[in-house]
Design a protein around this nucleic acid. Structure first.
Lengths: 374, 374
DNA sequence: TTGAAAGCGTTACCAG
DNA sequence: CTGGTAACGCTTTCAA
């Protein structure tokens, strides 16, 4: 592996000049530049990034935008852990992470976070959770990790901020609806929601004795693009069974109690013929409660989403039959890993990293918990 | 971020002494060591990876012992990819990998590989596959990654070689039957085989209309510990159904053709009442062929193991219903990652890293293929 | 048992 | 326009 020194010697100049040529800073005589370029090509010079990082002793700062960690039953804590684990594994002591959380149910709070991001402002109450080393001093971020679980309009706010700052970004969990093109395209780390729904369809079909009656999908809370795609995958799967009716239940913008009542109202008329349920997000618990309160006598096969502790309990108790995991920890890990390699080591960003669609049953639940600890 | 210099100043010693304490090399006065340790703790000193990598003149060498990459349908190429990916990700420019392959069906070749390992001999035909950067010069390895898929006796050959050399080792895919204790315990990266079998049981139960008749496990080729544990998990699952008979089929040490005939002979008497099959290793194809040749009219639910391309085709065509994946790529990745962190960064080796037991159906097959590419 | 100093490959700065 | 040189934080070697 040749070094600047070798290049300098080969070209008959000093290393200072080589550096100037490499980075195009300062003025270099046309003829000298040619010689240096030739030497670089001849020796196949590759800069040593460790040396570069050491000498610059620059600290990189990643902003991480997600809903508040405690929202969605603590879901958002998980990808944050993945981010932290990735940075730790790479032993990149020169990368710091700053969380910019927003309220998932309040787009205004997202836009406020975008403004703070754009301004490089410091985060007000950044010490909620010690799991990620936080930076308080105001500074422009060198990269952005974001779960854009907001409307298209709010997304485009963020997109223009990213474009203005000209910093690299990676999205996870959800895609940007408008992802941009070419170099400006924002990589995505996550699961294909339609496929996830199809898997739910298949699983529920395996759990049903005979394909008849009605199968229903239930979507509670924000009915975003992602969740509706899951429902589509599920219904398209069941379409192949002519004797099966399909029902799509969507409820949004209510309080917890009202959801419970709403679900009961929607399910009641279907009950007699209901043969399987698919809950498209982590809210299985609500549906289970509804079924309990409706005094359903025999077990209705239920496929849910996301491996939260509440859902783990339900799968252990048999009230949920299967859960599909999005691997949120791995999403955070891969997203941070990709961004760090790009920013620190100048590697290319991937177009997208799709997560495997993971099926969790009572029998393999423990194997996922063990794995999560790593 | 504090540096060795800070630590030295804080402890009132030179940086040389700090280094000696950090790495436990050379002699340091008891009292001095205490002061340095206290300073390290007080300043929360973390070594700088870039500086370390830059100054470290030493190149580490990992030996990787697996069956030849092309054996078992190309299976062993997969963990090797994981190893390579881990090294690349860590940007450890000073780690090289040397493959020491053996013939899975010939224990003598394994023992020969052990001898080469013990002697630090160079590998004869090491250029089979360009995927892993190979080292040819003879040298003692600094660490070992091994898939010990051999008899207990051959394993203990290797164990004593490891003990003699005193280098760290990590096993993956299969455990050492006798794993040693304490510091000498060899970490394992892989799946719990019993749990895997239980999942196969559960899946097959979901695929069966009504629990009755006979369910059978089929183990072909080397009947090693791992595979028999999988069969146990499967049978123990089905034990809870009183109306179901269980059959365990094991065939070893034959040629391909004889396996086919053997499977047919074993299955024929069961056919009329056979309600589900579990193939404990990657050989599902043979069982599918046997069923075809036996002119089985209706589909018998079949759960197989390992995501090889032949098995992917069978799952697409519907001849296999589900496959359990051991995540071989991740095994290689995690094993190499753990070893590198231990050898290069002097982190502790983990006791074991369990892989999630992954369920692959036709609907989520593609999501695993996409993920594997990463 | 300890300290001092020379590298590792870059970048940044200051003289010429 | 160009060359020389001091950092960056760590490891390693040589003296004391």
């Amino acid at each position: 592996m040749s070094t600047v020194k070798d290049v300098a010697r080969h070209a008959g100049v000093s290393i200072g000049t080589v550096d100037r040529v490499i980075h195009g800073r300062g003025r270099v005589a046309e003829e000298t530049e040619q010689r240096v370029m030739a030497a670089i090509a001849a020796l196949d010079y590759q800069p040593n990034l460790h040396a570069r990082n050491l000498s610059q002793s620059k600290t990189f700062l990643f902003d991480v935008m997600t809903p508040a960690p405690e929202q969605d039953g603590g879901y958002w804590r998980i990808p944050l852990n993945g981010v932290q684990r990735a940075i730790g594994r790479l032993t990149l002591s020169n990368v710091e992470v700053r969380r910019r959380c927003f309220d998932r149910h309040d787009e205004a709070s997202f836009r406020a976070a975008v403004r703070r991001f754009a301004a490089g402002a410091e985060e007000p109450s950044d010490r909620v959770d010690g799991s990620v080393r936080d930076v308080t001093a105001p500074a422009q971020a060198d990269g952005l990790l974001v779960a854009p679980v907001v409307s298209r309009e709010s997304q485009s706010d963020l997109l223009s901020a990213i474009a203005d700052l000209g910093i690299p970004a990676v999205s996870f969990d959800s895609r940007f609806v408008d992802r941009g093109a070419g170099d400006r395209r924002i990589p995505f780390v996550g699961q294909d929601p339609y496929q996830g729904g199809a898997v739910a369809g298949r699983l529920s079909s395996m759990l049903v004795r005979s394909p008849a009656g009605t199968v229903a999908s239930v979507t509670l809370g924000r009915a975003d693009e992602h969740l509706l795609r899951r429902a589509s995958g599920f219904h398209d799967f069941w379409q192949r069974f002519p004797d099966v009716q399909r029902a799509e239940i969507v409820l949004s913008d209510r309080s917890e109690k009202e959801y419970l009542r709403g679900v009961k109202d929607k399910l009641r008329p279907l009950l007699s013929e209901l043969s399987a349920l698919f809950v498209t997000n982590a809210a299985s618990e609500l549906v289970v409660s509804a079924l309990r309160e409706l005094d359903v006598e025999c077990h209705i096969p239920l496929v849910g989403y996301d491996l939260l502790s509440r859902n783990m309990d339900l799968i252990r108790s048999g009230e949920i039959d299967a859960i599909i995991s999005q691997k949120p920890e791995l999403q955070g890990y891969e997203a941070a890993s990709a961004l760090a390699h790009h920013v620190v080591f100048e590697k290319q960003l991937p177009g997208e990293i799709l997560m495997p669609i993971e099926i969790v049953l009572a029998e393999n639940l423990d194997s996922f918990i063990a794995a999560e600890v790593t």
